[in-house]
Design a protein around this nucleic acid. Structure first.
Length: 341
DNA sequence: TGTCCACGGGAAAGAAAGGTGG
DNA sequence: CCACCTTTCTTTCCCGTGGACA
């Protein structure tokens, strides 16, 4: 009935990047973001949003959920940008234009302002929601000013800290301060429990894990849904690999220390360029088969004018990312699949 | 049954960091 | 401060391995 799987029904549901069909315990934030975007439906000017909160509080999932919802009601365009991968003004504009289907040759020396003009031209009589995720990583804050000053563009900025760009240009600062702020607090243990129940219901075979066990995972997560889902997934995979019929307490205990990373942001900062690229690719496309990864990696390197490292070295870096618990690896040999934790 | 192809161990080359003595 | 040697970490090259697939 579930193939040979005894534990996992749908692995995708157990990944952090999976966008659930309903978002729980974020009603206030969802409504706030909806209100900000709502004017777009009547072709009026929307409000920009600044979303902040610690990792694993649902910022990215919720934004994507609301944007998807909006697109069902209105012919608005949307672009998602991970600023970790595209931190510069040029890269962001280039990547926006690319996602909007603007194809042009990347000749060296294209002035950044030219890209901005192109974008502004394209935005005439259209509107577009731009999600800037990991905005802490932005190298140049002028891009924010550019985007805010472009009619038709609505920004959703996502960051960990509220105080981002505290020392920015006063013009930009006043713009940022006028953005609608939406705070994401860490989830309570009970809220995490609800999320886990939801994921377990859709992702696991019925009755392989008990509510008490889920509660144990929730208590250990410190309000970080990403961590909690990671533990659930690791425990389920261990159980599955051992051909067990149930997830045992031992499976969970084994999974907990694996996913307790001291401080994820600290770890991320310690990565080198290549590791960041790899992590960015794996994180933004929820799952990457090994056969695609190296190609994608080389492509990003070329965009960044970087000489790609040789494939064996990449495998070394992937091993490191895995040991830092930033990515998880499933499958074997040629059929290895990398996914974000 | 042979081909394909990413994996991962190991050696060796290269690069960066650390130490020492003039 | 510099020149030179040593150590440590990173990257590359080489290659055997094993599972899917035709």
């Amino acid at each position: 009935m579930y193939d040979s799987n005894t534990i996992i029904k749908d692995l995708r549901v157990l990944t952090e990047s999976f966008i659930p069909r309903r978002i729980i315990h974020r009603d206030g934030q969802i409504n706030a973001l909806r209100d900000n975007l709502k004017p777009l439906i009547d072709k009026e000017a929307p409000r920009n949003s600044f979303i902040y909160g610690p990792p694993g509080t649902g910022k990215t999932s919720m934004s994507q959920y609301v944007v998807d919802e909006l697109k069902a009601y209105s012919p608005v365009l949307s672009v998602y940008i991970n600023c970790w991968l595209y931190p510069s003004r040029f890269k962001i504009l280039y990547s926006i234009l690319q996602s909007l289907g603007q194809i042009f040759i990347h000749r060296k020396g294209t002035p950044t302002d030219e890209l901005l003009d192109l974008l502004r031209q394209k935005m005439k009589n259209r509107s577009c929601v731009i999600v800037l995720d990991e905005a802490d990583q932005l190298e140049d804050d002028k891009i924010l000013y550019d985007l805010v000053e472009t009619p038709g563009i609505c920004i959703i900025m996502i960051a960990n800290k509220e105080t981002i760009f505290y020392d920015a240009d006063p013009r930009i600062r006043s713009r940022l301060e006028s953005m609608e702020r939406i705070e994401f607090r860490p989830y309570s243990t009970n809220e995490i429990l609800d999320i886990l129940k939801d994921r377990a219901e859709w992702g696991l075979v019925p009755h392989v894990i008990t509510p008490v066990q889920l509660n144990k995972i929730a208590e250990h997560s410190n309000g970080d849904a990403r961590k909690a889902i990671g533990v659930l997934r690791a425990a389920a995979e261990t159980a599955e690999n051992q051909d067990s019929e149930l997830i045992t307490d031992t499976h969970i205990e084994k999974a907990i220390p694996k996913s307790v990373s001291i401080n994820q942001t600290k770890t991320l900062e310690s990565l080198n360029v290549h590791q960041k690229i790899l992590y960015g690719i794996i994180k933004s496309s929820r799952q990457v088969p090994s056969s695609d990864l190296y190609q994608k990696y080389s492509a990003v390197c070329r965009e960044k004018d970087l000489e790609p490292l040789v494939d064996r070295t990449i495998r070394n870096h992937l091993e490191k990312l895995q040991s830092y618990n930033l990515i998880s690896v499933s499958g074997e040999g040629r059929w290895t699949v990398y996914s974000s934790v």
